[in-house]
């Protein structure tokens, strides 16, 4: 037994020694060491930086795609208008209209496929009775949608640099963060009283405005002195009833359906979206740092 233990220990030690020898290969060259003394000591990390943002307006027509949608995807068409006080701080507003392009997901198609067959059955069948409050004639018609968004926002640009593509194309770029309140125009299934939510009229839609925080980060790739391509991720968390279902309001902790459609049926969603934009900067000439 001891011999076996000794063998295992010896083997492990040998492996460790081999690993250490492998990792301890000598370092013979070095480059771009941080210079703590000399002419670069205390200097800024970049000289003659092209100040693409400082004291310039940014007008950015944008297309925004919602992500991870349960029942319906929205493509929002809009623009971002920002005034950059400095190269790292701006204030602006993003506005977009989403009422034009709303596309059902595969899950919606599957639910409607079942619903369509079910609607041909006798209304007294179990499935018809249990879904009378939940599903109208056409499931798509009761889906909530984001019709418009207006979001005043602060933009911070802490990172500025460049990227080399295929070692031949060099593009100035920046990475920015933004945040602010968002005003969201929603179309949602209208509220209705208990035991009155299975009539065709009870599946009518209503509009409301939600106020939510919005934040995210983005990348700008500068194509010329006055234009850039932008990619942006945005979080927009708030509660809404995406499927028009009665999911809560009754029973223990109000976690059970109560045959009414109310604000209790709104569930928290961490809504996310991706934006692609074409940014135009005015005036068209940028400044250059010292």
């Amino acid at each position: 037994m001891n011999t076996t233990k000794a063998k295992i220990t010896k083997c492990l030690l040998s492996l460790l020694a081999a690993g250490a020898a492998f990792l301890a290969a000598p370092e013979r060259a070095s480059a771009q060491e941080i210079l703590l003394t000399g002419p670069l000591a205390g200097a800024s990390s970049v000289r003659h930086l092209r100040l693409y943002r400082e004291r310039r307006f940014e007008i950015a027509p944008a297309v925004t795609f919602t992500l991870l949608d349960e029942y319906q995807r929205t493509i929002l068409l809009g623009a971002r208008l920002t005034y950059n006080f400095t190269d790292w701080l701006g204030f602006g507003v993003w506005g977009a209209y989403g009422g034009a392009i709303q596309l059902p997901t595969h899950l919606t198609d599957e639910i409607q496929k079942v619903n369509r067959v079910r609607r041909t059955e006798d209304p007294t069948t179990t499935n018809r009775r249990l879904t009378a409050v939940q599903l109208g004639d056409n499931f798509e018609d009761q889906l909530a949608g984001m019709d418009w968004v207006v979001a005043p926002q602060i933009t911070l640009v802490p990172f500025r640099g460049k990227i080399a593509l295929f070692q031949s194309i060099y593009v100035d770029t920046d990475l920015y963060f933004f945040g602010g309140p968002a005003f969201v125009g929603l179309k949602e299934r209208a509220e209705c009283e208990a035991n009155a939510c299975s009539t065709p009229e009870s599946f009518d839609m209503a509009s409301r405005m939600a106020i939510a925080p919005t934040f995210g980060l983005g990348l700008s790739f500068y194509m010329s002195k006055w234009s850039a391509l932008g990619f942006e991720w945005r979080g927009l968390p708030f509660s809404w009833n995406t499927g028009g279902f009665d999911t809560a309001g009754g029973g223990k902790d109000n976690n059970y359906p109560d045959t009414a459609i109310s604000d209790a049926d709104r569930r928290f969603h961490f809504n996310q979206m991706l934006t692609v934009s074409f940014n135009v900067y005015l005036p068209t000439q940028y400044r250059v740092s010292e």
Binding site: S45, L49, F159, R160, K162, I163, L165, F166, T173
Partner: peptide, 13 residues
Amino acid sequence: PAFGKFSGFSDFI
């Protein structure tokens, strides 16, 4: 295909 560098807060790279 792409590599680059960022200056953070004009202070470090």
